[in-house]
Design a protein around this nucleic acid. Structure first.
Lengths: 126, 126
DNA sequence: CCTTACTGACTACGTTTGTAATCGAACGGA
DNA sequence: TCCGTTCGATTACAAACGTAGTCAGTAAGG
């Protein structure tokens, strides 16, 4: 399995998940909106992600085109599970219970989730 | 606001959330089940948590009795929000959607959550 | 060709984290 | 009273992280 992706690295991954492949410069450009990193910083993060096997780089001329090697959905799954395991004993319902108690859910959230849960998770209907 | 609590520190907090106040030794004992830390390690973590203001220590004779200063529910809220913000744009429903898609929910989870969501919440949305 | 601008690589450095040894003070038993 | 045990405090140190500067190669333009 992949090594842990740090917060800063995650920001870089998000850019590449949104649009890949990209050069280091392109990544840095899209990051300056959210972060205030210099180009060298972004390049370091890209190198580390490359070393971790989270990215692949295909050389285009003199520069690199970076692209994610791990899917966002996998990363998200992994992180979600990590949190749920760590804080809620692996069960999702305590999370939802917690959020409802805390009033962190809007009415829209609730209806959306209800719809999702009614969707065919298990099939085989009579 | 509290400084960030690391993973190792979190394990210590869990012990104290389960049962407080405790001496350093008592904490270490309960941790050896899950972690394989030596006493000095646990003491370091306790000190750091103390420095971060996450714990209070009331001196009992020659030793300390540690107790949490931050509530577990607050920590959990904070961490949950952090994850949901970071990975799901602040919305919970995508998390649920994600988990259902991934088949990460048992039937029991689903019915429990349905019950929870039917409880009166009622909020306005942006 | 020769210079320049751009690119990845390498280096740097302070902080946080994980993990632990050691030290000095104090308490308790002999 | 003296010593060993027991605490917390101090110190240590490597790895990871956040952030960034410098270097060397090379493609492109003149």
């Amino acid at each position: 399995m992949a090594e842990r992706i740090s917060d800063a690295e995650h920001a870089v991954m998000e850019v590449l998940w949104a649009d890949a492949p990209l050069t280091a410069n392109a990544v840095a450009e899209r990051l300056t909106d959210s972060q205030s990193w210099t180009l060298p910083t972004v390049k370091t993060l890209l190198s580390r992600l490359l070393a971790k096997g989270a990215l692949a780089a295909e050389t285009e001329g003199r520069r690199f085109l970076y692209r994610p090697l791990i899917a966002r959905v996998d990363y998200v799954s992994h992180e979600s599970r990590r949190l749920v395991d760590r804080l809620f004993g692996g069960r999702l319902s305590p999370l939802v219970a917690h959020l409802t108690e805390r009033g962190a859910l809007t009415a829209d959230d609730i209806s959306e989730i209800m719809v999702l849960l009614k969707a065919p998770v298990g099939h085989s209907r009579p």
